[in-house]
Design a protein around this nucleic acid. Structure first.
Lengths: 211, 211
DNA sequence: CAGCGTGGATACCGGTACTATCTTACTACA
DNA sequence: TGTAGTAAGATAGTACCGGTATCCACGCTG
């Protein structure tokens, strides 16, 4: 197919597709003449992944570049690609100065949850530590080991199920696309459900108590 | 305290505080002279809430204005403020054309979960519907009632606990601040834990199977 | 054989979230 | 009482991000 068809099928403006091509987020098509190039299903899938990460996940374009680099590196084992992508699409303020106390809290939680295969350098682990530090700083909120472990146990149930649901018998690129997009969009699904749950439960306690 | 002290105590650049004052995100201090104004603890708390929503929650400044308007409307019941704020800080692509089938799926899930106090107009409900529509469109991912209900049950456990943990005996403004910030930062905490869980569980299945 | 649409390049744009500068004048200290 | 320091308030400017728009020379299609 030609670019215009690619753009149309993914429901993305042509100008945006050209922009992604310029930025090497999307590999160039096969040139079939001086002003002609062909794109295939793999381009379409890649384009859909990119849009999904941008629109649902809010991943900035610069991070998308790192994502595609990891995805395209055939030598990298699937698990390494995933940890790399996880680090790159992680969102939030820079996890600045490491507060050892908060990091210790986090590690205690991970240990209690039985998570012993988490890299020490995991960005998410560091982000969590600075979030804990922020929570325990000025302000009314607290984050003790107990509540965090409660959260972690629920997260364990969820993440375990999500990993189990993966179809590990597909081709590498398909598996990776499934993991990356699934992680982002089901994360969003869960967050929405959590907030809907807040609405329901808060309505309930508000009703049975006074205003 | 004076602005400079306010800025310093919240660890926010003075110029940013002035910007927030201009945008009426932060109420003006009490003028004690032509070039002098006093700020108090309530300003400090408000400023911290704003920064937390911006930095941890990624809430845009325009939405912050709607948040403070709801927060400052003393006549609005706490629950109404919360639903309003929830709608406003909800993130993602605009939930465009409503696909009735996806909405039906979502409502079936809510019903199965026992969530009967969710407004029909809830933005999160609509967002979830369009996410479901997107999942069931082209692409490998599916979102059936069964998986969604599984997610919803976990979200139910989490959101129920979060609502139960609220100290409902504090003053209105403190309660609201606690709810708003808690919703955002614990959401982030959970998301980070979920992703750390992915890393652990994926490492495990990768090890016991081949690469 | 007309003219549409292509690949490729470059320039431009609108929104967001600040940041810098300037003016005027109070105030605290010497 | 002088004066250095800083406050408030207003206006202007900036950096970045994520695209859009335009242009060009030319091959392909009807």
């Amino acid at each position: 197919m030609l670019v215009s068809e690619l753009a149309e099928r993914a429901d993305v403006p042509l100008a945006t597709v050209k922009y992604y091509l310029r930025e090497h987020l999307l590999p160039a098509g096969v040139t079939t003449g001086p002003r002609r190039a062909e794109y295939d299903e793999s381009h379409l899938r890649r384009l859909r992944v990119l849009r999904l990460l941008r629109e649902v996940g809010g991943v900035p374009v610069t991070s998308l570049r790192q994502v595609v680099e990891a995805l395209d590196d055939e030598d990298l084992p699937v698990h390494d690609v995933m940890t790399l992508v996880a680090d790159v699409i992680s969102f939030g303020p820079e996890p600045a100065a490491q507060d050892p106390a908060s990091l210790a809290v986090v590690d205690e939680v991970l240990q209690r949850t039985g998570w012993d295969r988490v890299r020490g350098g995991s960005i998410d682990r560091q982000r969590l530590a600075s979030l804990v530090a922020m929570l325990n700083g000025p302000g009314p909120l607290r984050a003790g080991v107990d509540v965090l472990t409660f959260y972690a146990r629920i997260a364990d149930e969820l993440s375990r199920a999500e990993i189990a649901l993966l179809d590990r018998n597909t081709e590498r690129s398909l598996l990776l696309e499934q993991m990356v997009t699934g992680s982002v969009v089901y994360g969003q699904v869960f967050e929405l459900l959590r907030r809907i749950g807040h609405e329901h439960h808060h309505a309930q306690v508000t009703e049975t108590a006074g205003t």
